[in-house]
């Protein structure tokens, strides 16, 4: 495993920990989109169907369990925990996530490498992950008042995507036959979605002012 990949996984892990920290210790999910969190739970559930059938490494299995466990517990917290539930900004989190799930499913049925259940589900999860952040970005833009932990959560998620792109470039030049168009194009689309947020995040950090997004 190369350094970009490891750094990518670690920033992904940090983003989840930041979010769990916010939810678990402060008992608040203000500014967090339940729609995005539900989409991530669906992404991991459909991607890691191989968790008990294909063993890759202990690292791989443990990370999969962490991402599955954390995404479902975040959804549980936001839906069922009395205090956390109260801080959920339901009125602004109105993105219709069916509008993302259905096109991704259709696209996965049309464009995939093998027409098997596991492969189509895996491809669906790749497409869905690319756009799953959209409800969160829309919510940020609507609330405009972004607290530090929420900003850091989205920043680390974006960092994870950018590092994965560097990882793919590295692997392409160092490993034979390393070509994965579906993953690359989806990953690129996903990273581009963060570009706008990154711009405002970094300029607010540079100018040492609170992060706000333009309307």
């Amino acid at each position: 495993m190369n350094a970009f990949r490891l750094a990518g996984d670690m920033t992904h892990l940090i983003s989840v920990l930041v979010l769990l920290l916010k939810i678990h210790t402060i008992k608040s999910c203000a500014g967090i989109s339940l729609k995005t969190q539900e989409l991530y739970a669906l992404v991991f559930a459909t991607r890691y169907l191989d968790i008990f059938t294909d063993f890759i490494s202990l690292y791989n299995t443990v990370m999969k369990l962490i991402f599955l466990g954390s995404s479902f517990s975040i959804v549980w917290y936001m839906r069922r925990h009395k205090l956390v539930q109260r801080s959920y900004d339901k009125d602004h989190d109105t993105f219709r996530h069916q509008l993302l799930v259905l096109p991704c499913l259709i696209l996965a049925l049309l464009i995939h490498e093998q027409f098997t259940f596991k492969e189509v589900m895996w491809t669906f999860s790749i497409y869905l992950e690319a756009v799953a952040i959209l409800p969160q970005l829309v919510l940020l833009q609507r609330t405009r008042n972004i607290d530090n932990l929420t900003g850091q959560y989205v920043f680390f998620l974006g960092a994870y995507r950018s590092l994965y792109i560097l990882n793919w470039i590295y692997r392409y030049f160092t490993e034979p036959h390393y070509v994965h168009w579906i993953t690359w194009i989806s990953g690129l689309v996903q990273t581009l979605l963060y570009a706008d947020f990154f711009y405002y995040y970094i300029s607010s950090w540079k100018n040492n002012v609170k992060l706000t997004l333009p309307a």
Binding site: D50, D54, W122, Y164
Partner: peptide, 10 residues
């Protein structure tokens, strides 16, 4: 062709 164990990314 995808080789077995190639999906080593998360």
């Amino acid at each position: 062709i995808r080789l077995k164990g190639e999906k080593d990314e998360l």
